[in-house]
């Protein structure tokens, strides 16, 4: 990628390389890597906020307790509003998802860190867990009635099999778009940051590049929170299919 003017070094995708934490060598499924480290750090950060931050259980909350309570209330409201009253039972899972994605996104914004949610392998696991969970839950709660979702009873009989296939495919579109959206947003943003960082080494454009990086960093902060929110609210929407009333 050598450009004129003394060899620009821009490797925007290098930040996503999975490396073993200790020493060199091939990455096996059990190898602790930088992904493992930052996944664990996300869990530790959540633990610090939700367990240590609220351990005094004060009636007048401290700052960290306020943040924790705010998030709890926000997600609880969202689950109740979107998934309905029956969905509140599954609030712990939704809350876990939200906190995990939010913290993974935000930790990824620390310079030199690793953004775990920029890997489809991570987000696809989360999305598949939601997909399988909702499907199993729907089948367990509604039995065969859950499959009525694919049988459009308002359409003419001849069209119904074709519509059923279309509905089935659109059901399978969910986990794919669910995971690609999160990973794609994070990866694109971080790659753009790196590209601008590369340009900052050219004295002539470095003020512009650094200004742009600052702006994009702010945007990325927003994107991190919004993507965590979107992932969570879509989980609630899918959950509604499994637990909601069948009157539509």
């Amino acid at each position: 990628m050598a450009a004129e003017g003394g060899g620009l070094q821009i490797h925007p995708m290098d930040q996503f390389i999975v490396k073993p934490l200790f020493g060199e060598g091939p990455v096996h499924w059990y190898t602790p890597t930088n992904v493992t480290l930052w996944l664990v750090l996300a869990v530790v950060a959540i633990g610090l906020l939700m367990v240590v931050g609220t351990r005094r259980r004060a009636i007048v909350p401290s700052r960290s307790q306020s943040v924790a309570e705010l998030m709890y209330g926000f997600i609880h409201n969202m689950v109740e509003e979107v998934a309905g009253h029956d969905g509140v039972k599954y609030f712990p899972y939704v809350m876990t998802l939200f906190l995990f994605i939010l913290f993974a996104n935000l930790l990824g914004l620390i310079p030199m860190s690793f953004t775990t949610t920029s890997h489809v392998a991570v987000t696809a696991t989360l999305a598949l867990a939601v997909f399988l969970g909702v499907t199993v839950l729907g089948l367990a709660r509604k039995g065969v009635g859950f499959l009525a979702m694919f049988w459009v009873s308002s359409a003419p009989l001849a069209l119904r099999p074709i519509l059923a296939v279309i509905e089935l495919i659109s059901y399978f579109v969910r986990p794919v778009s669910h995971s690609i959206r999160l990973a794609g947003n994070l990866m694109a943003g971080h790659a753009v940051l790196k590209v601008f960082a590369g340009f900052a080494s050219v004295a002539l454009v470095s003020p512009v590049a650094i200004g742009a990086m600052t702006a994009i960093y702010a945007l990325e902060l927003l994107v991190s929170v919004i993507q965590a929110y979107v992932f969570t609210i879509l989980t609630c929407v899918y959950l509604k299919d499994a637990v909601g009333d069948a009157h539509h």
């Binding site: 495919i169 659109s170 399978f172 579109v173 778009s177 690609i180 794609g184 919004i226 979107v230």
Partner: peptide, 25 residues
């Protein structure tokens, strides 16, 4: 503005993944 952009982005992904999933099946 951002949430509208987000919605547009979401729709495009859904359209593309729909075809990809269909093609895959």
């Amino acid at each position: 503005g951002l949430s509208q952009g987000e919605a547009a982005w979401r729709m495009v992904i859904e359209l593309a993944t729909g075809m990809a999933v269909g093609l895959g099946i």
